[in-house]
Design a protein around this nucleic acid. Structure first.
Lengths: 145, 145
DNA sequence: TATCTTTATTTGACTAGTCAAGTGATCGGC
DNA sequence: GCCGATCACTTGACTAGTCAAATAAAGATA
């Protein structure tokens, strides 16, 4: 026993990368008093607002409970508001949330871009994107079954 | 504004994949009364035992506090023991932990392997492994600076 | 030998997430 | 026009992790 497969090696590398880059990312946005996860959510809201909580949860593949808590934190900070209409809560950015998003956006994009540029050519990045998209879509399909 | 780069798209795909595959993975090992994260830790301990907590934390890129809590849970379940010698705690598997590891190992490996095999050829997997290894090593180096 | 530094681990207060059970509204059937 | 199903969201109890401050045991220094 105790033999790894190619698949399991890919797994470990992906998991480590995601975890480590989250740490770097958090460090990168700390000076804006926000976390990387919160920025991701603000970014989604900014792109699709107004949208319901369940639509948002779907876009970032998080559970209904998870999004409820996350929005609770963002609301407490004054970044978003929830507009109740019938049984749905429509989420949108406040003035403050919009400003924060714009403030952090370029910075975070630059950070991600240079991390990749520092170790992969454009052609390699394209190749990586194609492959990762394939497995991610497959996993997503599998999850909704 | 509001334009994504190739790097940020890769980012999102990787993050989603990791998160979604963790959900599937957890589902896959639930019947063994263990979580995917716990299995990963048992697997590392099984490979390198005996090792100190800080060595283990290093191998799985987790903080010292994180490993302390995780080992607390595993100890409570009776899967590992901590042998105190001078100021170091040496971690190793108990009988029960060894059995659990063996019980789950093949199953989890098969699961990971078939998920990859279902959507990528062997050549594509090799390519993906090479690329992901490159970025992960780069990120790791960056983190230790 | 008494104190000061370093190393290993723990703990408190948090974020971020899970699942499952609970809360309300609205809607379809009779 | 009431009654149960369903939808959207919240909440309780948990895992898994972070950082920073606390603790404890060596080891070095003076």
């Amino acid at each position: 026993m105790r033999k790894n497969t190619l698949a399991s090696l890919i797994w470990v590398r992906m998991t480590r990368f995601t975890h480590q880059s989250a740490l770097l990312s958090n460090d990168n946005v700390k000076k804006y008093d926000i976390t990387a996860a919160q920025f991701d959510v603000l970014n989604q809201i900014g792109t699709y607002q107004p949208l319901s909580q369940s639509e948002l949860a779907d876009k970032i593949t998080i559970s209904a409970g998870g999004i409820s808590r996350m929005l609770g934190r963002l609301e407490r900070e004054g970044y978003i508001k929830r507009n109740v209409e019938w049984k749905t809560k429509w989420i949108s950015l406040t003035e403050k949330g919009q400003e924060k998003l714009e403030e952090v956006f370029e910075h975070q994009l630059d950070f991600q871009t240079s991390l990749m540029d520092e170790c992969l050519t454009k052609a390699e990045q394209k190749e990586l994107y194609a492959l990762v998209t394939k497995v991610q879509k497959h996993t997503e399909k599998k999850l909704n079954t």
